[in-house]
Design a protein around this nucleic acid. Sequence first.
DNA 1: CCGGGCCACGGTATTCAGTACCATACGCGG
DNA 2: CCGCGTATGGTACTGAATACCGTGGCCCGG
Lengths: 230, 230
Amino acid sequence: MSKPPARIRLADAAFALFDERGYEQTTVDDIADRAGVGRTTFFRHYRSKEAVIFPDHDRLLELIRDRLATSSHSTALVAVSDAVRLVLLHYVDEGELARRRYALTSKVSALRDREIASVARYQRLFREFIADWMGDPTESASLRAEIMAAAVVAAHNHVLRRWLRGESPDPVREVDEAMSEVLALFPAPSGHEDGGAGGTTVVAFRTGQDLDALLPSLRRLVEGGTGAGH
Amino acid sequence: MSKPPARIRLADAAFALFDERGYEQTTVDDIADRAGVGRTTFFRHYRSKEAVIFPDHDRLLELIRDRLATSSHSTALVAVSDAVRLVLLHYVDEGELARRRYALTSKVSALRDREIASVARYQRLFREFIADWMGDPTESASLRAEIMAAAVVAAHNHVLRRWLRGESPDPVREVDEAMSEVLALFPAPSGHEDGGAGGTTVVAFRTGQDLDALLPSLRRLVEGGTGAGH
DNA sequence: CCGGGCCACGGTATTCAGTACCATACGCGG
DNA sequence: CCGCGTATGGTACTGAATACCGTGGCCCGG
């Protein structure tokens, strides 16, 4: 009844107006007016007109960074898969909101460009992480890290966009399969190979994640025979 | 003695001022003033303040499109390599100008974002081309096309940035090697395999390019045994 | 009940990018 | 000399983004 906080009202008003009149045809004043706040308040909550569409990219970056940080050499690829799944789940959780955003970014090139720039920041995180993981400071390893990061992000985006278009009933399964396919492209680095052929490697570790969220990775590691080997 | 055309004077003035005061600290008026023209003239030659740094991305896009268009199914991967080399050569030909631009994009996030958006457009071209080439309309092929395009572009960017930083004495060789590495990651699609084992496939075609520019691709096709096979 | 600090908010003014419109000068063929 | 196209300059306007200031609520110790 009363009112949700200004931040929410502003976002609601923005999406509504963008739907009605289009992005360029909507001024920040319009948004502030409909939200019942002053123009100043808008910019207090969102750095720019575009930012109202992409509220929490920074938080998402932190999420990825954290997930990657909690990994050892042998669990690096699992961490990558997990981080990718994390991002996907974030959007899936947004539900209809993510789809409205997608509709906007599909039409307005300024927004599409901004989205792409954000994705590039994810990619950078992955690139740096993978390069560290490889250890090898040679130019060839650096190139491979870059390619691998690009492939990882491309796979994620592909599945995400499919879900956004309503073409994917089970995006989590799809992204796990896609990641499996991507990681299979790249042979494992120097790493100490565990034992010989056959058998199962058990890795014990502690994480803040739900077991459910981890299961797909575990299953893939055990069944797929991939994740490290070729 | 007289004066170079306004377009050039504007670009010179812009780069000079960006070096002196920085990008944000330079207004379009400043640039126009130093170039000795009116503010209107600036916007007649460049759509925006950022565009003065990236004059010919559209032309570059056309270049890629054209090169990809002049290819058959069996020469598709050569076309991709060529197109990538084309882009790299474009920047290398710019020489110091490209390096000044790189210095700017490294410091100013707005410019970096725009650069990234441009690269995404190249990537899209490659993605569509590769998807067409694969023919296969299944979701799995579509994913692979996306990953492949991302890998191709990542390889290019990697080499380009190395050259921009002065770390690559022979970027063309490097990019050819990088492309070779990338394409080797992906098994060939359905395509009709030519003959059996051994032998050499000769493909005759006509192109507007210098033979020198094509040689590396040819050599790779003959020697590497890759470009299609695994 | 009362100051005092904190904080969210609103309003005003300013800068600057980008667009629209109009006026002018130059070159060139009729 | 006239007509025409083109490059240019100037002026004015919209709108995003920033800076600054004032104000009203709200909590808290007195």
